[in-house]
Simulated scan of single mutants.
Amino acid sequence: MESTTSVLVTGATGFIGRRLVTELTDGGTAVRAMTRHPERYGGAGEPVGADVNAPDTLPAALEGVDVAVYLVHSLDHDDFEARDAEAARSFGAAAARAGVRQIVYLGGLGDEDEDLSPHLRSRREVESLLGEAGVPVTVLRAAIVVGHGGVSWELTRQLVKKLPAMVVPRWTATRTQPIAVDDVIRYLAGVIDNPDAIGEVFEIGGPEAMTYLDMLTVASEMANGRSIPVVPVPVLTPRLSSYWLALVTDIDVTTGRNLIDSMATEVVVHDRRILDVVPGDPLPYREAVRRALAERLAEGKAV
C-alpha cells in the first residue's frame, strides 16, 4: 500500500541514507533523495540537489515535504562541531518555513551526566538545533552501527584482517552496544510519520552490551576463523590512536580521531521504549557481522 507521506532523506548517498531511501521507496513512500550532486545519483527515489551547508539551496528541496530525515555530519573536518551546529540550525529553520511536520535524526548514545566527547556532544547539540525553529524532532540514538560500508564497522574489519596481533589502548575495555544496520533502517522507517514517535528521543541498540575488545574478537573469529592475539597498552592517546589507525586502515586521521574520542565513554541502551513503537527483536552482533561480511563478498570483495 502506497503512503501519501512525502519524505526527504538527506545524505541519500551515504551508508545509512541509501539503504533508507531504498527501504522507503520499496514500501511505496515518495522519497526525495537529497545530494549535492543529483546528476551523479543512481539510487532509488527522486534526486534533488541541495547542501545543508548552503542554506539557500534548502527551500526548493523541502517544498511540499512532510517528513525530513537528517543524516548529515562532518566528522572528516577539524571544525565539525561548528559546521554541524550551523547546518542543523539552517536546516531546522528551512524545514519550519516549508511546513515540514517532523524531522527524524540519527544521533549518538551517551548518558547526559557523562563527560561527553566532542563528537557525542555535537550529536546532542544537533538534536536541539534541528528543532529550534519549532519542527518536532524524533531522535534515534545509536552507538556503533554494524554493516558493510559503515565507517565504524570498516575500522573493525580492517583491523582484524590486516593485523597479525593487535596492540590495543585502554578504551577498548569500554562498553558499547552495537546495532545492525538493518535494525537502524527498520527503526528509522518505523518512526517516520508515526504519531507515537513525534518529538520523542529513543535509544536503539542490539541485544548485547559488549566491550570494543569483545567486538574485535568476535569479528576476527568470523572473518579469519581465529582470534588474533591482543596486547593491551596502558597509555595510547586518542591522537596517537588515530595515527595508528591511519597506518593500518584507510580511515583518515581526522575521522579516526573524532571517532576514537568517543570510545572512552560508555554508550549502552538504558531505555527500550523503541520496542513499543517499532516492535521486533534486534539482531545479535554475530548475525550483524555475518551479514556485513556476506554483503561485502556479494560485491566481489575479499572479507
Rank of each mutant, 00 (worst) to 15 (best):
T13Q: 12
G14P: 05
I16Y: 04
I16H: 07
R19F: 02
V21K: 03
E23Y: 08
V31M: 00
V31P: 05
R32L: 01
R36Y: 06
H37F: 00
H37P: 04
E39Q: 00
R40T: 00
G43C: 01
G43Y: 07
A44L: 04
G45W: 02
V48M: 06
V48N: 03
G49D: 12
G49K: 10
D51F: 00
D51C: 02
A61D: 13
L62G: 04
L62W: 08
E63F: 08
G64S: 08
D66A: 10
V72P: 11
S74N: 11
D76V: 07
H77Y: 11
D78A: 12
E81G: 12
A82Q: 14
A82I: 03
A88D: 09
A93M: 06
G99S: 03
V100H: 06
V100M: 07
R101G: 11
I103F: 04
V104S: 12
G107N: 07
L109R: 09
L109T: 07
G110W: 02
D111A: 15
D111T: 10
E112Y: 14
D113T: 15
L116I: 09
L120E: 12
R121E: 15
S122I: 02
V126T: 15
E127S: 08
S128G: 15
S128V: 13
L129M: 13
L130S: 11
E132Y: 13
E132S: 15
G134T: 09
P136A: 06
T138M: 07
A142Q: 07
V146D: 05
V146P: 12
V146F: 11
H148K: 09
G149I: 01
G149K: 11
V151W: 14
W153I: 01
Q158C: 10
Q158R: 13
V160Q: 10
V160A: 02
L163C: 06
L163H: 12
A165R: 14
T172E: 11
T172Y: 15
T174V: 09
T174Y: 11
T176K: 11
T176H: 15
I179Y: 08
V181D: 11
I185M: 04
I185W: 07
R186G: 06
I192A: 03
N194L: 00
E203R: 10
T211Q: 12
D214F: 00
L216W: 10
A219R: 07
E221G: 04
N224Q: 14
G225F: 04
I228N: 12
P229M: 03
R239N: 14
S242N: 09
Y243I: 12
A246L: 05
A246P: 12
D250F: 06
I251A: 13
D252L: 01
D252G: 04
T254A: 04
T254E: 07
G256E: 11
R257I: 02
D261K: 00
T265Y: 11
I274F: 08
V277N: 13
P279Y: 00
P279D: 09
Y285F: 12
R286L: 01
R291W: 02
R296E: 13
A298E: 10
